[in-house]
Design a protein around this nucleic acid. Structure first.
Length: 202
DNA sequence: CGTACGATCTGCT
DNA sequence: GCAGATCGTACGA
């Protein structure tokens, strides 16, 4: 188990990084509970020229301030008044890149994740969707700005290699307002079935 | 200060 | 498949 170092998050290619994060393991230690999940879906948000990004046109507010910080921090914000969406800030200071984590497959603390989701048995839909990921992992806006080099939220490389054959690419979800940028292929995902077929999980 | 809307989820059909 | 929930945030007056 190897925790991703700061240098990983300073990569300037946020789209390539979003692809690379598939198969990495998101871990939280929140409320005295350790939970972990395999990252199965991501979206890249590429700075001030990306109409879908909160930082489009150099927009910089209290909400998205952390996007402008050095890579390796969390960016958590509230969507539709109820959903806490968890992003990973990348690139060096001043360039607001971020990766939205949209889906995980629980690995550790599954009981706690199910409890937080008010479910009794896991199926993909239980932790599929960015709001559900945060809820299962115990992440809220209180975790906004947390360093991924600390002991509250971090990402590990546990050696799971995701072959390109099972990686799906599509436009991002729910950003119809973004004009021509709405069709950019910045969403990456793998399915539970795809992982099973390649014997990457049980 | 008022208004519009959103990187979504759930439940019901 | 679809409507409704629900409220913080952004932005213009």
């Amino acid at each position: 188990m190897i925790r991703l170092a700061e240098s990983y998050y300073l990569n300037q290619d946020v789209v390539g990084l979003a692809r690379d994060m598939l198969g990495k393991v998101l871990v939280t230690h929140i409320g005295g509970i350790v939970a972990a999940g395999l990252i199965a879906e991501t979206e890249a948000y590429a700075g001030i020229n990306d109409r879908a990004s909160h930082a489009f046109g150099e927009r910089r507010t209290n909400r998205n301030e952390v996007m402008y910080h050095r890579g390796g921090k969390s960016y958590v914000y509230l969507c539709y008044g109820i959903h806490h969406l968890f992003n990973i800030v990348t690139h060096d200071e001043g360039i607001p890149h971020a990766i939205l984590i949209r889906s995980i497959i629980p690995i550790e603390g599954i009981e706690a994740q199910l409890r937080r989701r008010s479910q009794t048995i896991w199926k993909p839909s239980v932790t599929q969707g960015p709001g559900k990921v945060s809820q299962a992992m115990g992440i809220t806006v209180k975790e906004n700005g947390v360093s991924l080099l600390g002991n509250r939220i971090w990402v590990e490389d546990r050696g799971v290699d995701i072959p390109k054959e099972i990686v799906n690419i599509s436009p991002r979800i729910g950003i119809d307002y973004a004009g021509e940028d709405a069709s950019l292929p910045y969403r990456f995902y793998i399915t539970y079935e795809g992982l099973k077929n390649h014997h990457l999980i049980f």
